[in-house]
């Protein structure tokens, strides 16, 4: 019993310590986010990797979500005789919740894991030390471009996901079922206002920060990992941790932002 409690305490302290390191890491990056010179070229490369290459996955994810949402909501709404309101229901769910969350989870899984593995390998290969020894700040050289690219990419991807998702709902409601297309679009246009768009934007920025923070931070702190395994094994374990932790944080912050903005 005492042993169990001691062990729990040990684990808690370990986790708190880790969280502390991650926080220091985040603060360091943020303090260097606006420092000259700005690395356009590196940001561009990261934009390509994080943003452009995610577009197709986001397209697939959001169209299927829109379709499924359209089908399900149509069945329920037509039971009440208000299938004309499908546009409202679909667009509100997508713009406020699903668009940002689905996009963030996809980006975490696709780009976040790759970023974490990349930084982790750089740590275990001593590439980060090599940067230090070349008097190149790894934060400015590596982290800052990744942060900027993610902060730019995710809101754009969320906007794409929103539009595609609403279009998916349109296919389900109007093309497959019998919702008048005017009613659908009117529902979309009249129900969405700047408040909902604002929520979508705030969420996408928060999620972007979570994604890039957890991904780069977990990789960067590979050497402090308690299991103490370097190399490929350590990288793969840290990457898994990053994806799990990032996804949970995304869902948690989704709830938090919703709660704050509704209240």
């Amino acid at each position: 019993m005492v042993r169990a409690i001691t062990r729990l305490g040990e684990k808690t302290i370990e986790q708190l310590e880790h969280l502390g390191h991650l926080t220091v890491f985040l603060m360091t990056v943020i303090s260097k986010l606006f420092v000259f010179p700005f690395r356009y070229r590196a940001v561009l490369q990261q934009l390509y990797f994080i943003g452009a290459k995610s577009t197709f996955v986001i397209f697939l994810a959001s169209i299927t979500i829109g379709l499924a949402l359209g089908l399900n909501l149509y069945v329920e709404l037509s039971r009440l005789g208000v299938q004309d309101r499908l546009g409202t229901a679909v667009s509100l769910s997508i713009v406020r919740e699903l668009g940002p969350v689905i996009t963030a989870l996809m980006v975490m899984g696709r780009a976040g894991s790759a970023i974490c593995a990349e930084v982790g390998i750089m740590r275990s290969d001593e590439q980060l030390d090599a940067l230090e020894c070349m008097a190149i700040d790894p934060f400015k050289f590596l982290m800052v471009p990744k942060f900027w690219a993610t902060l730019i990419s995710v809101p754009l991807l969320v906007a794409i996901a929103d539009v595609i998702g609403v279009f998916g709902g349109y296919i389900a409601g109007v093309v497959i079922f019998d919702v008048p297309y005017g009613a659908y679009w009117q529902g979309v246009y009249t129900s969405i206002d700047w408040q909902h768009l604002n929520m979508g934007l705030i969420k996408s920025l928060v999620f972007a920060l979570v994604i890039v923070w957890v991904a780069t931070g977990k990789g960067f702190l590979l050497h402090l990992d308690k299991a103490g395994v370097y190399g490929a094994e350590g990288v793969s374990r840290v990457t898994t941790q990053a994806v799990v932790m990032g996804s949970i944080l995304i869902l948690f912050f989704n709830f938090l932002v919703s709660a704050f903005m509704v209240a």
């Binding site: 990349e118 390998i121 750089m122 290969d125 001593e126 590439q127 030390d129 090599a130 230090e132 020894c133 070349m134 008097a135 700040d137």
Partner: peptide, 21 residues
Amino acid sequence: QLYQFRRQIGVAFQGGALFGN
């Protein structure tokens, strides 16, 4: 000071530490 100092030295790491990309 460290960065200033490191500009005047060279370091070759065990695994090379070449940047993969």
